[in-house]
């Protein structure tokens, strides 16, 4: 499993398991992070897998992201790559 950290001034993020998926509720409080989230969304929408990571946009820069278990690491690393997260490490 992964442990991650983010700037709580700029972002609220909760995750919960739901069957074979992990659901993230993300609320961006910073405009730059909204753009970063959109780039992560493009990354997963442009690949050949349609059900890996699904983004749902709500008003006020809130997002629900449904992530298939087997794409959990890919999603977290994509958030890190686009600087939505500040730190990611393997839990021992």
């Amino acid at each position: 499993m992964l442990r991650y950290e983010y700037d709580k001034q700029k972002l609220n993020m909760q995750e919960k398991a739901n069957g074979n998926d992990v659901e993230f509720d993300i609320h961006c409080l910073d405009g730059a992070l909204v753009e970063a989230i959109k780039r992560v969304q493009e990354l997963f929408e442009d690949n050949d897998v349609h059900t890996d990571v699904l983004f749902y946009a709500y008003p006020n820069h809130e997002y629900r992201v449904i992530v298939r278990q087997d794409y959990y690491v890919d999603f977290i690393l994509a958030l890190m790559k686009h600087r939505v997260l500040q730190r990611v490490e393997w839990m021992t």
Binding site: D21, H50, T51, L54, R64, I66
Partner: peptide, 13 residues
């Protein structure tokens, strides 16, 4: 239509 369908049905479970 297929990707949109996956998206909506997944949300509705």
């Amino acid at each position: 239509m297929v990707p949109v369908t996956f998206s909506i049905t997944r949300q509705l479970r």
